Simulated assay, not measured.
Amino acid sequence: MITPDPTTPEGAAVIDLHEQMEDLEKRTGEWPGADVVDILGLWLADFDFTRAPAPTRWVTGSTWVLRRQDRHEDVVTLWADEASALASLAQHARANWDNVWGADGIPDSPPANDRRAVDLYYGPKDERDDEDYWLYADDIGRLAPAMPTPDGFRFPGEEFCTEANSAAVFHPMTGPYDEGLPCIEVGGVLVFAYLDPDMQAVRVSVDLDTAIEQLVRGDATVPLHVEVGNATVFSAGARPVPAKAWAGRMRWLARRVRWMRWWRGD
């Protein structure tokens, strides 16, 4: 038995056809051939059978793009943040400070401040000749296949996910001498979040080895999407439902607003 998925264009179209045929039978007591042909003709006109469905582009992260160009090279590098990219550019400027030393307003030694060193070395945008650079943030995209995965894997539906989320369990440390780490368990997946003095950072790690079978694809991987704030920092195997992507984002925003109000004591 095949159940049409109303969240996909194809599933919604099948359900719409079923409703039209039911309405026809209620009105006439049967399926008159001429009426059925008219309904099917209009219904089929909404489909395009001439080309394969185009894959959908999803944003899976972001990066800073630095392009540096001179008479000898044209180099493009990617950086996790603007400060790192600027530091790399400043390093190049300091290593080639002799190219600008002696010009008006240029000190004998390059400044310690990265932004200042870059601004002095390259000068105003409209006055750059042999050397120039471009620095900007851009999204990292991924094309999600339009067709189902070869092994027929389908991520669990909303009802299943709601039940699994409501059954999530928090495993705290039992004390300062507990060798374990605090984590939340949902669907067999363990998500650890803790303060790591060795890394000197808040550390988050995910253990997928015990994930329930409904989450595991044929290649033994689990679809995973990780966000920090509003930025996607990792995404593998995630295939957002187009019809629900915006609604899901709005629900997330509503939860965020409620949390902020609670935090402020409103």
Results as ranks from 00 to 15, higher is better:
residue 143 L to M: 07
residue 121 Y to M: 04
residue 251 R to Y: 03
residue 163 E to N: 11
residue 171 H to W: 12
residue 122 Y to K: 02
residue 57 R to S: 15
residue 73 E to V: 06
residue 213 E to H: 12
residue 179 E to Y: 03
residue 10 E to T: 12
residue 32 P to Q: 13
residue 103 A to M: 11
residue 144 A to Q: 09
residue 41 G to P: 05
residue 68 R to W: 12
residue 225 H to E: 13
residue 191 V to Q: 05
residue 114 D to R: 06
residue 98 D to N: 14
residue 56 T to W: 15
residue 143 L to W: 08
residue 249 R to P: 02
residue 74 D to A: 14
residue 99 N to W: 02
residue 16 D to T: 09
residue 201 A to P: 01
residue 1 M to I: 10
residue 152 G to T: 12
residue 149 T to F: 07
residue 158 E to D: 08
residue 37 V to M: 09
residue 56 T to Y: 13
residue 241 V to Y: 01
residue 94 R to G: 04
residue 124 P to L: 11
residue 232 T to V: 15
residue 175 G to Y: 06
residue 253 L to D: 12
residue 167 A to M: 11
residue 245 A to N: 07
residue 125 K to N: 13
residue 175 G to D: 04
residue 19 E to P: 00
residue 54 A to S: 11
residue 236 A to M: 15
residue 117 A to L: 03
residue 28 T to D: 02
residue 188 G to W: 10
residue 213 E to F: 06
residue 171 H to G: 04
residue 249 R to C: 05
residue 245 A to L: 10
residue 263 W to T: 00
residue 134 W to Y: 13
residue 101 W to F: 10
residue 88 S to T: 08
residue 57 R to M: 13
residue 210 T to P: 00
residue 246 W to S: 05
residue 258 R to Q: 15
residue 160 F to L: 11
residue 77 T to Q: 14
residue 95 A to I: 01
residue 201 A to D: 12
residue 65 V to M: 14
residue 183 C to I: 03
residue 218 G to W: 03
residue 164 A to F: 00
residue 165 N to Q: 05
residue 128 R to Y: 09
residue 107 P to Y: 12
residue 69 Q to W: 05
residue 185 E to C: 05
residue 93 A to T: 00
residue 193 A to K: 02
residue 154 R to L: 08
residue 176 P to L: 01
residue 255 R to E: 09
